[in-house]
């Protein structure tokens, strides 16, 4: 399997659309085209092997199932994962002669994709930095009261940033990377230490994705309880995800009602004439 210039160019356009500040907007771009599952579908169609594309996309999606970018700090920009990592992983799966739906193919996809995906962080900061030029032009326009120019600044000029930091890197890396991946087969035997390590890493990486999300939700040790209850439902009771979600709703309802009951009970006491007395009592207890 090789990747032609035309195929590489199509992947380059998708990379421009799908990055975190992508040209398709975050709902259609980052959160749709940028998801490795969707990237797998696109790459599968472009490279003419949908089954391998989807299988690689499913595997990669697990690593990045929970990609949160709090305050614009980016741990991974998915344009490189979905449109450089997946195509190269597909080539690697073919080169190693693995069955597309096997667990080994999935592990290979994960480690290949994640390895290449780290490039995404560089591309992200490149794009964001180049956008400063267009923003500077925007500020000048605002000062002059030439507001129509804001549309060009927001929707037009950033394409130039993406030409340099999405399109060109994707085209070059997918086109030339595919022959490098082919050569890998002869250089690294499957039962050698490097390949075994690469596959093991692939199985471990999704833990990072889940942990990133937990970081958002967990503030104290008690916040781990919902996570482990959900984990137990799926691992021990074999419930599927929709079932887990349905069960979780009852807990959400209880917590909501409880919180509302507590806050409505508090207010009348605090605002009544007896409030001051109670406040005094609390202060004494604190001492």
């Amino acid at each position: 399997m090789t990747i032609s210039w035309i195929q590489a160019s199509i992947l380059g356009i998708f990379a421009s659309l799908s990055s975190m500040p992508g040209m398709a907007g975050s709902t259609i771009g980052n959160y749709t085209l940028g998801r490795p599952l969707v990237g797998g579908l696109v790459c599968g169609i472009v490279l003419g092997d949908m089954k391998t594309g989807i299988a690689a996309g499913v595997a990669m999606q697990l690593v990045y199932i929970a990609l949160v970018t709090p305050g614009g700090t980016v741990s991974a920009d998915l344009r490189a994962v979905s449109y450089i990592g997946i195509p190269l992983a597909m080539v690697a799966i073919h080169a190693q002669g693995l069955s597309a739906t096997s667990a080994n193919a999935a592990d290979l996809a994960k480690s290949m994709g994640t390895l290449v995906g780290t490039v995404g962080t560089v591309l992200f900061y490149g794009t964001a930095t180049m956008n400063l030029v267009w923003q500077h032009m925007g500020w000048r326009a605002v000062e002059k009261g030439d507001f129509k120019k804001l549309y060009a600044v927001d929707w037009g000029y950033p394409w130039i940033s993406h030409l340099f930091f999405s399109f060109i890197p994707t085209v070059l890396m997918t086109h030339f990377g595919s022959s490098a991946v082919q050569a890998l087969k002869t250089a690294l035997p499957m039962d050698g230490i490097p390949m075994k390590t690469l596959f093991t890493v692939g199985a471990l990486l999704p833990c990072v994705g889940i942990a990133i999300l937990l970081k958002q939700i967990v503030e104290g040790p008690l916040d781990f309880i919902p996570f482990f209850v959900g984990f137990t439902f799926a691992a021990s009771l074999k419930l599927n995800l929709v079932s887990v979600t349905v069960v979780s709703l009852i807990f959400a309802m209880i917590f909501y009602k409880l919180d509302m009951a507590i806050s409505t009970n508090k207010q009348p006491v605090a605002s009544s004439s007896g409030g001051a007395v109670i406040d005094d009592d609390e202060e004494e207890e604190d001492i």
């Binding site: 929970a66 309880i225 959900g230 799926a234 691992a235 995800l241």
Partner: peptide, 21 residues
């Protein structure tokens, strides 16, 4: 708080379903 509870349980389910070490 209610959303965080749903989120926590769903993430637990996702982890148990899709991650295997």
């Amino acid at each position: 708080k209610a959303i965080a509870t749903v989120g926590g349980m769903v993430v637990g389910g996702v982890a148990a379903t899709w991650v295997t070490v």
